[in-house]
């Protein structure tokens, strides 16, 4: 029989997780419960993180934001400052599942479930977000892209968990966007996802760009060459074509029930271009 714990502090949570090798943190449960039901995971203990006060809610941090790891995706929509600064991240998190699912699901759970198709992850990587990891050995801040190790596996050590997602201060003339390809309009896992974050100068020239992809490799990818193809350009069609070439070159997808290699590769390029245009217009609107 499973043990159910709801610790009130980070330390207790970490101790409970460290004590039982098969123990699992529980945030929204929208992955964990499905996996438990299908028998894919059989934890001896569940450690519910939602009763830890510091893990819920959004606060200002270093000019940016610290989002408690147990904050459900729909709660992000209620934070006007966050929505204004990082609309792409908020949208990505609010593409997950349905309203019912998003009222529970968290970005930290999305990240730590380590699915290559997780929607919020490419957006967070593009935004250069970090995770605050807490564990028996104390705290550390880790770039988002370094958390997933392989499908279903993270680089977290026993007893470690994500306590916060930290988004940097947004550049005054920056913008971000995330798009995904799904067969339906809702309730689908991404066939491909693309997150883009840009900074423009007053002339509209791109001074910084990060392009990240989901579902085209075992983990979400930051495609540095794609970002580099945009930097220094006015985001003309030729620059976007070069960016798209870099995206295609970075894709290493599989054929599976959700899409073919050809389709995924082609869509990654198309979505990255479309997301770039949205990010551009957001950056432009901000500058």
């Amino acid at each position: 029989m499973i043990a159910f714990h709801s610790p009130q502090t980070l330390e207790d949570a970490s101790a409970l997780l460290a004590a039982e090798p098969s123990a699992r943190p529980l945030s929204g449960g929208t992955d964990l419960l499905v996996q438990m039901r299908s028998g894919r995971v059989e934890p001896a203990a569940i450690v519910d993180l939602k009763q830890i006060p510091s893990m819920r809610g959004i606060r200002a941090h270093d000019g940016g934001f610290a989002i408690g790891a147990a904050t459900p995706c729909t709660a992000l929509l209620d934070d006007a400052a966050l929505c204004a600064a990082w609309p792409g991240v908020v949208e990505a998190a609010n593409l997950i599942g349905s309203v019912q699912v998003r009222n529970r699901a968290t970005m930290a759970g999305n990240l730590c479930n380590a699915s290559p198709a997780a929607d919020s992850v490419p957006a967070l990587i593009a935004a250069d977000a970090r995770a605050l990891v807490v564990g028996p050995a104390g705290e550390r801040e880790v770039p988002i892209a370094d958390i997933p190790a392989a499908p279903g596996k993270t680089n977290l050590a026993q007893g470690e968990f994500v306590a916060e997602i930290r988004l940097p201060a947004k550049s005054a003339s920056g913008g971000d966007a995330y798009l995904r390809s799904i067969p339906r309009t809702e309730m689908d896992i991404a066939v491909v996802g693309a997150g883009v974050s840009l900074v423009l100068d007053s002339s509209g020239t791109c001074t910084a760009a990060r392009v990240a992809l989901g579902a085209v490799a075992p983990t979400a990818l930051l495609v540095e060459e794609a970002g580099a193809a945009l930097v220094g350009t006015g985001l003309d069609d030729a620059a976007l074509d070069r960016m798209a070439d870099a995206v295609r070159a970075a894709c290493n997808p599989i054929n599976d029930k959700r899409g073919t290699v050809e389709y995924r590769t082609a869509m990654a390029a198309i979505l990255a271009k479309r997301a770039t245009r949205i990010a551009q217009s957001r950056a432009g609107a901000n500058s």
Binding site: S6, G28, L33, G97, S98, Q100, V101, M187
Partner: peptide, 24 residues
């Protein structure tokens, strides 16, 4: 979590009750 037939309100937000543990 895929069909919504189990939808209930929990503290004013709608959730799939099949994806909530009873102790929660």
């Amino acid at each position: 979590g895929d069909c919504g037939a189990c939808t209930v309100m929990m503290d004013g937000r709608m959730v799939c009750s099949c994806l909530v543990l009873a102790p929660e």
